[in-house]
Amino acid sequence: MTLATHDVRWGAGGRMIVDGITLSAPPGRILGLIGPNGSGKSSLLRLLCRLRGVASGVVTLDGRDIAALPRRELARRLAFVEQQATTDVQLTVCDVVRLGRTPHRAAFASWTEADEHAVEAALERVGLAERHDQPWHTLSGGERQRVHIARALAQDPRELILDEPTNHLDIQHQLSILGLIRRLGLTCIVALHDLNLASLFCDRIGVLHAGRLVASGSPENVLTPELIRQVFGVEVHIRDGVGGRRHIEYVVDVEPGERP
C-alpha cells in the first residue's frame, strides 16, 4: 500500500462532499475513480495530494500522514495532473515541463545537467521529445495533455494523480493518453467519466456516489448492471470485451425508426 485514505471527510458550504472514504491505491497499478458529476471525485483527488486539508480522517503515504510531510518531500513523491489548463503566457513545451523540477531545486539555484536530463527523459516518455522548443499554444489538446503529464514526470514521482485526463479529447487521444498512463508503471489514481475506458485501463475501480464510496474492486466485480443503475440511473447490458474486460452497452429507449 502506498497512497491511501482512512475514513476521510471534507465538506464546504454546509455540505459533506467527501464522506468517510477509505480507499487504497495498489502499488504500480491504476485505480480509477468513477461516479456522477458532484460525487466527490475531484475533491477526493485534491485531498490526496494535500491541495485541501481533510476535516477528519487521514491520508497516508507509505503509512505516514501526508499532513506531517514537508511539502517539498511530498512533491518529490507525488504529482498531480489537473484537468486541461490554458495560459496566455508565451511558453514553450520545455518551459512547461521544467516547472516539474521545482521540488528538486533550492531557491535561486542554477539549472543543472540533472534537471535538463529529467526534462528530456520526461518528454521522451510521453513521445514529445521533438517538440522541446515548440510554442505551447500551437499544440493540440492531446499534445497539451501529454506535456502536462511530462511536467508531472519531471518531478520524478512514484505516485501520479490525474483528474479526468481525457476530458474534451477525441477518442483517439483518449485511448492514447490512457495507454500512456498504463505504460508508465507508476501507482496512478485517475478520475474518469467513461465507464468503458475505466474498465479497459484500470486495475481497480472505486465508485463514488454523493460523497461516499459505494463499491471498490476489479472492473469485473464492480461494473455490474445493478450498480450502474443505482449510481448512474441508466440501464445497461454487459458483455465480455477486449482482454476479458467488461464492455458496457447502454439501453436507449427510442421509438421505431428514430435514431438514439
Score class of each variant (00 low, 15 high):
residue 199 S to Y: 01
residue 76 R to Y: 06
residue 242 V to Q: 11
residue 192 L to R: 07
residue 86 T to A: 14
residue 152 A to W: 03
residue 143 E to C: 11
residue 136 W to E: 03
residue 241 G to Y: 03
residue 242 V to M: 05
residue 37 N to Y: 05
residue 201 F to T: 04
residue 8 V to W: 09
residue 213 L to Y: 05
residue 65 D to K: 11
residue 178 L to T: 10
residue 244 G to E: 06
residue 259 R to N: 12
residue 232 F to K: 12
residue 101 R to D: 06
residue 125 R to F: 03
residue 141 G to D: 07
residue 130 E to D: 14
residue 74 L to C: 06
residue 95 D to V: 13
residue 190 V to A: 07
residue 126 V to P: 00
residue 102 T to Y: 13
residue 33 L to A: 03
residue 21 I to D: 01
residue 32 G to M: 00
residue 52 R to P: 03
residue 3 L to R: 09
residue 152 A to V: 01
residue 162 L to M: 15
residue 155 Q to C: 12
residue 112 T to M: 10
residue 212 R to N: 02
residue 184 L to W: 02
residue 233 G to A: 02
residue 154 A to R: 09
residue 106 A to F: 06
residue 91 L to N: 05
residue 244 G to P: 02
residue 34 I to K: 09
residue 217 G to W: 08
residue 175 L to F: 15
residue 100 G to F: 09
residue 139 L to F: 03
residue 138 T to C: 13
residue 68 A to D: 10
residue 152 A to I: 08
residue 255 E to I: 06
residue 103 P to H: 06
residue 189 I to E: 01
residue 50 R to K: 13
residue 88 D to I: 03
residue 10 W to R: 04
residue 17 I to S: 01
residue 36 P to I: 05
residue 126 V to T: 02
residue 217 G to M: 12
residue 250 Y to D: 05
residue 119 V to E: 00
residue 52 R to N: 11
residue 42 S to L: 03
residue 162 L to Y: 02
residue 14 G to C: 09
residue 166 T to M: 05
residue 59 V to W: 08
residue 68 A to M: 12
residue 185 G to C: 08
residue 42 S to Y: 04
residue 136 W to Q: 00
residue 50 R to W: 10
residue 226 E to K: 13
residue 40 G to S: 00
residue 142 G to W: 07
residue 254 V to W: 05
residue 128 L to C: 05
residue 146 R to G: 09
residue 232 F to R: 12
residue 18 V to W: 05
residue 76 R to D: 08
residue 177 I to E: 12
residue 181 I to T: 09
residue 11 G to H: 01
residue 73 E to Y: 05
residue 196 N to D: 12
residue 207 V to Y: 02
residue 176 S to P: 01
residue 194 D to W: 00
residue 178 L to V: 08
residue 170 D to I: 04
residue 197 L to H: 14
residue 199 S to E: 08
residue 231 V to T: 05
residue 8 V to C: 02
residue 38 G to W: 08
residue 133 D to A: 14
residue 187 T to P: 01
